[in-house]
Design a protein around this nucleic acid. Structure first.
Lengths: 353, 353
DNA sequence: CGTCTTGACTAAATCGTTAGACTCCGAACG
DNA sequence: CGTTCGGAGTCTAACGATTTAGTCAAGACG
């Protein structure tokens, strides 16, 4: 049994051939030798239990079968799902996934990009697109390819080679229209700091839907989160709760809240409860993401916008790996997936019906 | 600005010294040269924007600042959390995390171990301990160190260098006693296939608590999941639902269910609802994990056993990295964290209170 | 009969770092 | 004045694969 480390040289010796030949066999270049020889090599490989040292191979070829996945937060289960899905898709193409959590900090994002490049990784999936990719342009020059989970605008072209997204504007319009359709006219928009493309777009969609319904846009009904310092684990549900407190304490209290994601929605539930309001009787809440299981089992089950996550992650991963393998090239590809409004029981007409 | 790839040789040339000297400076071996020289080297590094090629360094030293994390399932959000927490802890020690999802398949587990070793990774955190580590003993010989999330028994000594767990027996006893204390005598145990240590222990604890309460253990009240083939995404909530159907259709229907994790508990909610039973009036449900947010916001909020996940993951990561860095050695270390019963509203006395 | 091919491999140079063995030089010592 | 010693670096093999440019023998061709 191979105990220590068996190298290609050992195999060569064992098979009575040169290292080059072994390498050739292993890489399928068998046309240039007798069948008998390649069989003998294969035999030796088996007998010694040889497995090539990827580090050495990668150093030589510059090819690394690993991609990075950058997520923006450890607090939202959504990203855990994303991670698992990406690993699933990558593993089918025999790639590995390095998990990076940048906490939405551009400096950390850059640091991760750096580390990835240094370890030979040349592909990165960006969980949530920051408003600008400027801090990453240098890395593009060094060979880093980025696929974004949301489409980005500014300066993205130089870094981003592909993206998968839902139409966030449309989705938010859909969601908001659902609320106006129920008769709501004072609809709050509950979000953390708007520092990603998707958030900005959702706000735009919200606004469009309001205007389409002949309701004026009231900046006072938009809550953009606490101070930036209070970030980190406080995010998500806690922020949602705080925001709900704020918006629901206004004199002309909104009768519905559209939240930037399901965690905020859950937080809004808590916030409403704190103020003695009941969902959906006194307050409708509409989320975003359709967090698996959570949205369904929340009390009440959450009306929300679903992103087809597994599919989107597969597309993103395939785009990226396709680039790395040279199957794809040229202009960035942008894929738009269909979002869907899932109506459950957290929304109802205003006024307790 | 360094555009292409700057190598240590380039730096050496630029600073007018030999590559060895640059290497020495970079690795803090500055005792053997004049301050002026090392300063000149540092200067050159800065000017060229040099960053060492980790692949080359790793090949040479055999040291890789990456650990693997093996999770057993993509379906349970729990593992997404675990992944994020491990990455957080690892990143503080400047390590990277490779995500591996083995779907509880020993063959895949072995394949991942193989891949990790081939890429120079020598440390692995095992999300959930299989009943046996036999399929991994060969890898231990090849230098793989494993830290288990649960303590394992059979043959673990040769592979596992540390573990973090809660006392699953105790925790399950605690949980079950809570139910017997409420007056339940027919308590179902709802689990998938019992192929991990933790599951086996929870079953043992359940049994002990029953006996302590003078209630006989009835194997008929234990549901061990559907056929093994029906694995995959069907896991979790769906299995919980199926199991609930099964157990609740018995003539002497249980008045309480202790589920192996929160996903099963949520599934059991659905199963009970299907049969027209209300939680907790007609059926008490007790979960395990205290899935962040989910357990809290479920309807009704779930009584469950909490594992202090962030802390446990930090300990596991530190144990592993400690080994890799040679700070720790010798006998495996087993750390036991305190689990805690979190009583919410899914449990009540039997008979509609 | 000498040169060209072709088939079947092999030699050796990388890839970018590291580390133990050396070198070189001026100062100190006997 | 010859030798030893320590400081300040440098040389040179690796690490384990890949890959380009050969080598060598045997048969083909003119």
């Amino acid at each position: 049994m191979g105990s220590g480390k068996v190298s290609l040289r050992d195999v060569a010796r064992h098979a009575g051939v040169s290292p080059s030949t072994v390498s050739n066999v292993l890489n399928g270049r068998v046309g240039r030798m007798r069948d008998e020889t390649s069989e003998r090599v294969r035999q030796a490989v088996r007998e010694l239990g040889y497995a090539p040292n990827q580090l050495a191979r990668q150093l030589r070829t510059g090819q690394v079968r690993t991609i990075g996945l950058l997520v923006p937060s450890v607090a939202n289960p959504f990203w855990g799902f994303v991670a698992l899905r990406v690993e699933q898709a990558a593993s089918e193409r025999n790639y590995q996934v390095l998990l990076c959590n940048a906490e939405r900090d551009p400096a950390r994002e850059a640091r991760f990009a750096e580390t990835l490049l240094d370890s030979g990784v040349r592909g990165l999936i960006f969980g949530s697109s920051p408003l600008s990719f400027d801090h990453l342009t240098t890395f593009a020059g060094r060979g880093l390819q980025v696929v974004a989970f949301d489409r980005s605008l500014a300066g993205a072209g130089s870094v981003v080679v592909g993206s998968v997204e839902i139409d966030n504007v449309l989705a938010a319009r859909l969601a908001t229209s659902h609320l106006t359709g129920l008769g709501h006219t004072r609809i709050g928009f509950l979000s953390g700091p708007i520092r990603t493309v998707s958030r900005r777009e959702r706000l735009a969609g919200y606004r469009q839907a309001l205007e389409a319904a002949g309701i004026g846009f009231d900046p006072g009904l938009v809550w953009e989160g606490a101070s930036v310092t209070a970030f980190g684990d406080a995010e998500g549900a806690e922020l949602g709760r705080a925001g709900a407190h704020h918006l629901l304490s206004r004199p002309d209290r909104p009768t519905a809240l559209f939240t930037i994601n399901d965690m905020y929605a859950i937080g809004a539930y808590a916030g409403a409860r704190d103020l003695g309001l009941r969902v959906p009787d006194d307050l409708s809440v509409l989320g975003f993401d359709d967090l698996p299981v959570l949205a369904e089992v929340a009390a009440p089950p959450l009306t929300t916008v679903r992103q087809p996550l597994p599919e989107m992650m597969r597309v993103a991963t395939d785009q990226l790996i396709g680039r790395l393998e040279g199957e794809r090239s040229g202009e960035p590809e942008h894929v738009t997936a269909a979002a869907e409004l899932v109506v459950r029981q957290s929304t109802a007409p205003p006024g307790g019906r």
